[in-house]
Design a protein around this nucleic acid. Structure first.
Lengths: 218, 218
DNA sequence: GTCTATAGATAGATAGAC
DNA sequence: GTCTATCTATCTATAGAC
């Protein structure tokens, strides 16, 4: 029983259509087309629901052209997930570096970056998070390290806000999970035609985050 | 290249280990064992990453015993997803029915139910949401209807809170997405040994939800 | 209902011509 | 680097004995 073709199935995993990659990271030529095709298919059907043939076909290539550029399907997924996490971490880091040095401004900047990244690169974000479990342990390890570093950025800001008496948080870990989690879900429902820009969504969620940590006016 | 065995891969998609089902919904005998085994495997490896053989083996049955109880692998997934959504909706409805009739109490009750459900049945919640896209359109339609009804419960409470001047929300849809999304992510990190009970987590997230809608003291 | 055996399709991956 | 052909393993699902 063949899997339904993408266009015959009206309910999709993610609202976004385009597979935008961060500027400058997409490889040139067939390797780049394969990477982009894989990103779209992994986002829609998952890693396990996508065959190498599907990817090559969507990339306009022959059924095994992928193997001229990647050792395996898993290596394609690993590159996508790596690119996604690197872009996400870069945005968080840049946001922190340019924010005013008080916890409220830093929290706002982090959440805006987190959410905007999930809007601008929603397919990348979904695949990077939802398909991470499909990677072998050794390919996942460096990714998990980077994830922990990104999480650390937010934890540190929350803890400093509490220490300075600016934040009123009943539980640091719970606040971290709530703020991080509400931003991660954005990748599933955001699409450019939804009536909001990524900046607007980031602004709303930054306000929600400030409220979660007990800062009502910022 | 065979997929790595579950126990050889230390990074899992979800923290929880047990595949608890709501009381009274698990079928008796082999059909129930197959359903539970499928739930665990779908939660860990995804629908596309799990074979019928895997399910039967985990259920202690022969490789094709599944077909004596279900017409196809997709029907097993459909039953799991249906049970998950029904339990979730039942909890939300019961929470609303027993809550005091003011928007703040109703919001608190809804979020507690939403979060506790994602703690108590985390595998069910993850599979019900993350694998919904693997269902064909016709099998997904009734589920999507139920999802919309559950979402409607929360929207109505938020809108009534705004109308009564109790809530201060910059954007209803954004608040809905934030509150719903932070609760959905709970299923990925909650586990019984994490130091918090589902009631405690529900309490923290209800507080966060109240703060998101601008209610600081409740 | 459960077993063995297996059909028929498709998966990931490789070899060698060009 | 791309194409054709293909290997081997595995997949979903079925048939028929017990």
């Amino acid at each position: 029983m063949a899997r339904a073709a993408p266009e015959s199935n009206p309910h999709r995993r993610i609202a976004a259509i385009s597979a935008a990659m961060p500027p400058g990271v997409t490889p040139k030529g067939a390797r780049g087309r394969i990477l982009n095709a894989a990103l779209c298919l992994f986002a829609d059907h998952g890693y396990g629901g996508t065959s190498v043939r599907d990817i090559c076909s969507a990339a306009g290539a022959q059924p095994t052209t992928l193997y001229a550029h990647y050792p395996s399907k898993e290596h394609v997924l690993a590159e996508i997930i790596r690119l996604g996490h690197e872009e996400h971490h870069r945005r968080l880091r840049d946001a922190l570096l340019t924010a005013q040095p008080d916890p409220t401004q830093q929290l706002s900047a982090l959440v805006r970056a987190h959410v905007q990244s999930h809007c601008d690169y929603s397919m990348l974000a979904v695949v990077a998070t939802a398909e991470l479990h499909a990677l072998s342990a050794e390919m996942a390890t460096p990714i998990l390290t980077l994830r922990a570093q990104s999480e650390r950025l937010l934890i540190d800001v929350i803890e400093r806000g509490i220490e300075q008496g600016v934040f009123n948080v009943p539980d640091t870990v719970m606040a971290l999970r709530a703020i991080g989690g509400m931003g991660m879900r954005v990748a599933y429902w955001y699409e450019p035609g939804c009536g909001r820009t990524p900046e607007e969504v980031g602004g709303f969620f930054a306000e929600f985050a400030r409220r979660i940590v007990g800062v009502m006016n910022a």
